[in-house]
Design a binder for these strands. Sequence first.
DNA 1: CATGAATGAGGTTTCATTCAT
DNA 2: GATGAATGAAACCTCATTCAT
Lengths: 214, 214, 214, 214
Amino acid sequence: MTGPPTTTQARTRAERLRQELREEIVTAAFEEFSQRGYHDTGIADIAQRLGIGHGTFYRHFKNKRDILDHVVDGLLARILEALAAENAPDAVDTLDEYVEQCRRISGALSEIFSADPRVARMLLLEATSIDAELTERVLGLFDTATALTAAYFMHGRELGYLRADLDVDGTARAVVGVILANLLQGLRTPADREAQRRTADAGLRLMFDGIARR
Amino acid sequence: MTGPPTTTQARTRAERLRQELREEIVTAAFEEFSQRGYHDTGIADIAQRLGIGHGTFYRHFKNKRDILDHVVDGLLARILEALAAENAPDAVDTLDEYVEQCRRISGALSEIFSADPRVARMLLLEATSIDAELTERVLGLFDTATALTAAYFMHGRELGYLRADLDVDGTARAVVGVILANLLQGLRTPADREAQRRTADAGLRLMFDGIARR
Amino acid sequence: MTGPPTTTQARTRAERLRQELREEIVTAAFEEFSQRGYHDTGIADIAQRLGIGHGTFYRHFKNKRDILDHVVDGLLARILEALAAENAPDAVDTLDEYVEQCRRISGALSEIFSADPRVARMLLLEATSIDAELTERVLGLFDTATALTAAYFMHGRELGYLRADLDVDGTARAVVGVILANLLQGLRTPADREAQRRTADAGLRLMFDGIARR
Amino acid sequence: MTGPPTTTQARTRAERLRQELREEIVTAAFEEFSQRGYHDTGIADIAQRLGIGHGTFYRHFKNKRDILDHVVDGLLARILEALAAENAPDAVDTLDEYVEQCRRISGALSEIFSADPRVARMLLLEATSIDAELTERVLGLFDTATALTAAYFMHGRELGYLRADLDVDGTARAVVGVILANLLQGLRTPADREAQRRTADAGLRLMFDGIARR
DNA sequence: CATGAATGAGGTTTCATTCAT
DNA sequence: GATGAATGAAACCTCATTCAT
């Protein structure tokens, strides 16, 4: 027994190795794309980074565009997972719980974006300039985040701990903008984790207190 | 009355035609770049759109990268102008005046971004994927906006109409995120001006009221 | 009266100015061609050197190739003149006179080639790589020199002051090679006039004494 | 018996094919360059001559200039080999031996230049008009020849079979000029081997007898 | 007549993709 | 299945030449 079977269990050893190589290629492509940019990266660069022939690449991915999809898919999946994890909108019933929830989500996103600035670079800068389809997919992430946020707001408004006149959709979009600000901050000063934390905190206080003196 | 002479007045007729063509090329390049993307646009595409020979392009711009700089410069200039116009931080002395100020800036930005969704597309999606220098220039715009916002916050905190414990820098960054949300909204649903207005309004209310019930 | 009329007398003032400009263009082209090379020189470079529009060039010369012909013609004419000047083969009747004649010709050529290393550069290096016709014309100069030399040899052999078994044609070609040696020397060390003089002297002694001890 | 392995023996079959193609490209480039001229030859011409795609060219040579270097290098190597082979200056101790030596070198050069007039055309006409570096390399060949000749003269002067007052360097340069004359002769009348032989012989007699009657 | 803006043929080079080994 | 040699479309850019002003 070598442990429990993973969901993407590969039966044969060959199958397993193949799967591993695929993932290594995706990783290598991510590294090259996020560093040199999609257009300045050649298939040969990716292959060379792995020490494989560049023809081998085409045994695993249809073409250059294909690998990009896989890179982006992986990143999107990680983010969606962080957004969704144990974060059902109706699991929160008070303002304090919601604040706590926001902190948790904020922390999870920080975990991803601050830990590796290349993620934001890849998604925001590179992936949005290839073609409409991919741009759509990345921007769709913001829609998803907006929808999730809106669901929380709706829930909170119904339970009464959020403003009754809250424009659920519009505010959700604005709040997602604050998340974006954090990503940009990570792009600009990758090393300054403190600035990123302060921006996140300021965003939370903005949400719950506004800026005006009371 | 033909109006006051423009600042870039050209004396001779040839000079004027030359200047006009330069500007037409910049416009055509903007249109192509924002639509097909920088990498998928050839110099020939730009020239064809104007009905000029592609060699003519090179009489006016050094190379493909050069025209991109001019396109971006023009857009950045328009935005900076909108941000800076009659908007000195210390011209505002009460919360109401500041809210009004914010509305005005928000409106001016809407004027630019909502009127032409290609501006945001060009700056956010295309210009950020060419090289580090240009990315820097575009992202620098956010720094400028952040600095301006921070100046307002500082002023408001001193005059007492903003929270005394306001994290000026962090909050400024978060608020610029709200502007970003508006840009994104314009990218996603260019035709839906109402959605854009609601996002902008929600952003303002977020700033001044937060979301929690009082 | 402003002096005696030149052979290429121009009647009108306009005609004269035109002629002067033509010559200036030829000179400028020579300077550019011999320095940057024919292919690396643009019509615009030549025009710029004179401070005229490059369209003007085409009012005076058919095309780029045309001006090259004129440059080369001018140089060839100067050289042929030096070779031919008061140097009729039958004006020499003794070995001493012939030696003297050779010295004079050698000196005249030095005057041209050593005074301006660009002449040799232009003729030997540039003009021989454009097309067959021009190469032919430059190499034809050597035929002319050979023919002239052969005439001297023939005359000397008949009058008895040269070897009776002299291979007139072959030797003439070899002797022209000695002249070539001088040109090369000028190309290699343009500043070292002394080396050029020694090469020339050595060539003469080679002709009249050979190298073997007597 | 398939003969001894060449020095550039390639182990694997792929290695060998690659090497062969490289050499074929060099040969094809030589043919095109010497015939149409460097500037009038496109990479496509070279590729077409071999029936390969023009992209293939760039798998083997960095750029157009690179292949020219290789072409010239090959020619220079052949000539230097001919000059140096079994031709040590101090292996000659009498005038007769030296004459014999000169005949041998002259013959070896004829072998190269008369056998293929394109060699002289390539080196003298084409290669000298590309840039300073390459011109330098070709003209350097004459320096080498001059130095070798000078070494012979020095040796002969010391041993007494050459004139005691011989200007070793100047004369060496003049003699190399005679070789040049032979090359030119080959360029002018490639088919007339007899004329080339006569020029060479005349050159030798010039060296050892001069032209004057004794 | 001088000018220089416009032109486009032509050339070099890159690189994603294919396919024989 | 891996490899990398071969391919050629496609892009950028230059510059000799024309011609309207």
